[in-house]
Amino acid sequence: MRAAFAMAPAALRDQVFSAEQLEELARLLDLAPKMLTDPRDVDRLPQADRIELLITGWGCPVLDAALLERLPALKYVIHSAGSVKPFVTDALWERGVRVSSQVAANAVPVAEYTVAMIVLANKDVFDMARRARRGEPDPDIRTELADAGNYGKVVGVVGASQVGSLVLRMLAAYDLRLLVTDPTLDAAGAAALGAELVPLDVLVRDSDVVTVHAPSIPQTRGLIGADELSAMRPGATLINTSRAEIIDQDALARVAATGRIQAILDLLHPGESGRALARMENVIVTPHLAGSVGRELHRLGAGVLDEVRRVAGGAPLHFPVDPRTLARSA
């Protein structure tokens, strides 16, 4: 089967795929010697009219009607990252091209990051580290840390997405009370994840940690606003590894500045409120670190390789993208 890589920059291929994974892909596929990093590259792809499979990644050119006209044999798009929204088009679905993504694989490090932050936040690790940096004496753990620890704490998960659901399953190993809010979930579905389904206002009011995993769609923009932030318990922690726009960042800057809550943010919108949050002692900001980085990228490569093996063996895709639900997913 004739295939090609489509991602940018070209060096990304060797970050996502190990040498062994690339060798096996070369055995399974007739790989084009050039990559599709720009729509104009299709004219430089030898036998582009025979390409049946694209292995895409971050920076993939938009697969619109004009580009697809140059790829008339295309049957499969196997994406080596999460969301395919930046490059898929109606023209792709109209041609019956089958698409898969590594949303599930990329959810793993995000969930791991989230669970680690929840455990550390409930243990008051971040506050204790700040005290140590200021040279303050060690606390009396029998009196000053009476509410610290994870036993019996309440964790609220906003969005039973791939990441949100995995976070709930991972947290089942801890002695926590788990809450979840998601308009697509019923009580039985929440119970299967070990959680209680509650409205958003109840979740933010009752949780010691609120962690956001909702998709970025018009209905979720500003989902966590001034009312929700003000309703959080004093000393509670807000974690966001989803998209910055789901939280009203200006409102968060105002509430966090009072010291009532702490926040752990894996991404920020640029601007004054973002700069203000990054300077606050009770806010931890990481540079979109939760998703796959470094060695974790090879998990994405392994997932692509598995899909290619399935295609080569005539099996259905393991993680197909459904165009009917894409609009309400990440």
Rank of each mutant, 00 (worst) to 15 (best):
D38Y: 04
H318K: 15
M170A: 10
R2F: 11
E245D: 13
T181R: 03
I264N: 08
A226P: 05
F87T: 10
P109V: 00
T56F: 01
T258D: 11
P39Q: 07
C60H: 03
E52S: 10
L54N: 06
V202S: 14
F87A: 05
I78C: 09
I224Y: 08
R27H: 14
T143V: 12
P270S: 08
S230V: 08
R279E: 12
Q162M: 13
S165R: 09
T220M: 02
R130L: 12
G274V: 01
F126H: 08
R295P: 14
L238K: 06
A192N: 08
A148I: 04
M7P: 15
A104I: 07
G294K: 05
A172R: 12
G156D: 04
D90Q: 10
T181E: 04
P139D: 10
G225C: 05
E136N: 10
A263R: 05
N122F: 03
G225E: 12
A65F: 06
L54D: 09
L238T: 07
Y113R: 11
V157F: 02
V204Q: 11
F17M: 03
V125T: 14
K34H: 15
I55S: 11
A129R: 13
L36V: 06
V97N: 07
A81R: 04
L74Y: 02
V202H: 09
A32S: 14
V285K: 04
I261E: 06
V99C: 07
D182W: 02
A290T: 03
A26V: 12
S273K: 08
A263V: 00
E94M: 11
S100W: 00
S161D: 08
T184D: 15
K153I: 03
G303P: 14
P109G: 09
D138H: 15
A129W: 11
L176Y: 03
Q47V: 09
W58Y: 09
G135Y: 01
V16D: 15
L265S: 04
Y151C: 15
D90I: 10
P137Y: 04
D38C: 08
R142F: 15
G194C: 09
R130D: 14
A111C: 04
V285N: 06
A190Q: 04
G291F: 00
L29D: 07
F319W: 14
E296L: 14
V321R: 06
S165Y: 03
R295N: 12
A191Q: 14
K123R: 05
A315T: 13
I51D: 09
L229G: 07
P218V: 01
L71W: 01
P72Q: 01
S329Q: 13
R233E: 08
E23F: 11
A253V: 05
V212H: 12
G294I: 00
R40H: 15
G156R: 01
G301W: 00
M128W: 10
Y174R: 09
V202C: 13
F5W: 03
L193T: 02
L277F: 05
A8N: 14
L28V: 07
F87Y: 05
G152K: 03
L268S: 06
D186R: 06
M170E: 07
A253I: 01
E24N: 07
P320G: 10
N106W: 00
R243P: 00
V202R: 11
E23S: 15
A253C: 08
V99R: 07
V42Y: 02
A312G: 13
E144I: 05
G222C: 04
R2D: 13
L12A: 11
G313A: 12
V209H: 00
E272R: 14
L203K: 06
G189Y: 01
E112S: 07
G194H: 03
V108D: 11
D208V: 00
